[in-house]
Design a protein around this nucleic acid. Structure first.
Lengths: 198, 198
DNA sequence: AGTTAAGAAACGACCAGTCGTCTTGAGTGT
DNA sequence: ACACTCAAGACGACTGGTCGTTTCTTAACT
């Protein structure tokens, strides 16, 4: 009982630390030793928790996206906000967080899609799953906004959600090299305030 | 005289091979040995051509973007095509190339922005320069299209060029994990055929 | 008693980068 | 036109360190 509990917190620590390090340094740029040192777990123990670095990364991806799904979901369920406002509020929060992080890291999904999205099957699957979940939630919000009359209905919510996800990811890349929040702010403005709007 | 000529072709071979390998495997995922073996240059000679792997990558970035600038530029200078058609034609060509590559690699700029865009100063500078050149050329095309009356004038060509670059990059990431050309096709359609259009 | 995790040590392979030797060809003096 | 000089590129072995992974003994819990 105790042992499995300890194991679970160890595993969570590994995943949590993995989010930080993999996001900032990438997959190949981060060694297991660095992760293990940070959470004070000896190297030999790692393979009690994960079968390989690759499948560890695949789990980190899911661990990373869950809070974003939750955060966006709770905004959409907030009955005080209409769908479009909920989306805008959510992205505004993300922008603040990214500014506080001084534009370091960006998005783990975007970074890993570029680095290993087409070379690691395991991570590709995990990335696809994570992006699809996220995209689906955005589409739900856009559908709600369509019914509320604040978003155009001549484009499908699914297509707009894809466009929003992709533009956001591209804007995050730009943010990293410009060291500025302008690209991500522009992304939200162009799409949410203009293109999607009725 | 001969020696500098040989040096130049060696250097170009290194850059050309670097484009391929860095695009497909990333910066940290590609070892110098792998590059050097591919172009049959011994390890010790590498540092006669480049002071470090990092500055090599920075040069690879410029070597990579040049042909794209040239290709897009020649389309824009083609007097038979209006600006908007030139842009569409250019991106259609890119899509064909990416399909032929089976969606492997994507764009070196996007991949490196995500992986080392905020950790390597040298590469960040090089990436910024490359993206700015590219963005400026797209803006030129969009400005031309505005004057021809095929693109809306209530948004600045610069802003639209940024949006186009960013969305394209995000769509390339999606392409890599979906293993499909749909995201990049959708990107062109949404922006060039719809949002930018009058 | 039996199962499983913890943990240390070590595995071979590979990393970016360096060092000193070898080779080459341009420049100079004749 | 030829021989000599000498800097500069070519080159491969080697550096210390790190990579992901495995092995095996010890310890703890059921």
């Amino acid at each position: 009982m105790m042992v499995t509990l300890k194991m679970q917190t160890n595993k969570e620590n590994l995943l949590s630390q993995g989010v930080q390090l993999l996001m900032q340094q990438g997959y190949h740029g981060t060694g297991l030793k660095e992760i293990l040192d940070a959470v004070q777990i000896p190297k030999g123990s790692f393979y009690n928790y994960f079968p390989s670095k690759e499948s560890y990364a695949a789990e980190v991806i899911q661990y990373y996206i869950a809070p974003f799904i939750e955060q966006l979901g709770s905004h959409l369920e907030n009955s005080k906000l209409d769908g479009l406002t909920a989306l805008k509020t959510y992205f505004d929060e993300l922008i603040v967080e990214l500014e506080q992080a001084n534009f370091k890291g960006g998005c783990l999904l975007g970074n890993l899609m570029g680095e290993i999205g087409d070379t690691s099957d395991l991570c590709q699957q995990s990335l696809r799953l994570a992006v699809h979940q996220y995209r689906e939630l955005l589409a739900t919000g856009l559908r709600k906004a369509q019914m509320e009359g604040t978003v155009r209905i001549d484009k499908s919510a699914d297509d707009m959600a894809d466009l929003l996800v992709n533009t956001w990811q591209g804007a995050l890349l730009r943010m990293k090299i410009e060291q500025s929040a302008d690209p991500i702010k522009q992304c939200c403005h162009d799409l949410l305030d203009d293109y999607f709007s009725v």
